[in-house]
């Protein structure tokens, strides 16, 4: 893993249009090690688009994403190596078992002993006994745990999380929160997209609000969520 002291993620003037519709307007952000940026906003605000741009899964219409100081467009493979993405889909193949899915991912990332690494990740996620099952046989909550295991498999330095607590029961959600806290303490950076600020408020070091593709708030998280919520509803026009 490259050692780098500056910001993990930087976005400058990030803009994305689909045809004539602009869904993201000149977004700037900086994420340092140990920081978690919670991005909230209503449906269609551009949150998932922002995440895809940061992951390099989508090209910006204008602006630039830098990962560990290097432009993502110039060093796409290097950038992707340090990113873990938890999408709103599991990214798993139904025709492969959980173990085969994670072993395949481990091989793509060039990890040593891919099968053992994959099995350890599944066991860590509490899915060891189900390693031989197809993702299509799992409940939504277990599938989310498998998706999280896949996102963390290669030891990323940057985590991009799209609604990470979706479908998790209370115990699993608390376990994930603990895991994310541990990763933050180890110096990972996270961008967490959410509709439910309550789920990530304690984790976040920064809070941003996207409304109609514009940053309408970007500030350090301070105080209680209850004092922020009236402002949040005002910002998104709810």
């Amino acid at each position: 893993m490259p050692s780098y002291e500056g910001a993990l993620v930087e976005a400058h003037g990030l803009r994305r249009s689909f045809g004539r519709v602009r869904v993201l307007h000149d977004v700037n952000l900086t994420l340092a090690a140990g920081e978690a940026l919670a991005v909230a906003g209503p449906n269609g605000a551009g949150k998932s688009t922002l995440l895809r741009l940061l992951a390099g899964l989508m090209r910006p219409t204008a602006g630039e994403v830098r990962i560990l100081g290097r432009p993502l467009r110039q060093d796409a493979a290097g950038g992707r190596r340090v990113i873990g993405l938890l999408s709103h889909q599991s990214l798993l193949y139904d025709d492969l078992t959980l173990l085969e899915n994670l072993t395949f991912a481990a091989r793509l990332y060039g990890l040593l002993r891919p099968r053992e690494t994959a099995l350890a990740a599944l066991e860590h996620a509490g899915l060891g006994p189900r390693a031989g099952e197809s993702p299509r046989r799992l409940s939504r909550g277990l599938l989310q745990r498998a998706a999280i295991a896949r996102a963390l498999l290669h030891g990323p330095r940057i985590l991009l999380l799209d609604e990470p607590f979706t479908a998790l029961d209370a115990a699993a959600a608390e376990r994930l929160r603990e895991e994310l806290r541990r990763l933050l303490a180890r110096g990972l950076g996270m961008v967490i997209v959410t509709h439910h600020l309550a789920e990530v408020w304690d984790l976040a070091t920064w809070v941003s609000v996207l409304a109609e593709g514009r940053w309408v708030c970007d500030e350090p998280r301070a105080g209680a969520l209850s004092s922020f919520l009236p402002r949040y509803h005002g910002l998104i026009g709810a």
Binding site: L57, R80, Q89, S90, L91, L92, Y93
Partner: peptide, 18 residues
Amino acid sequence: TVERENGALDGLLLAPIP
């Protein structure tokens, strides 16, 4: 089409593979 299920194509494209 096999890559379309569960957004698997994103997982493939996200990997550091040329």
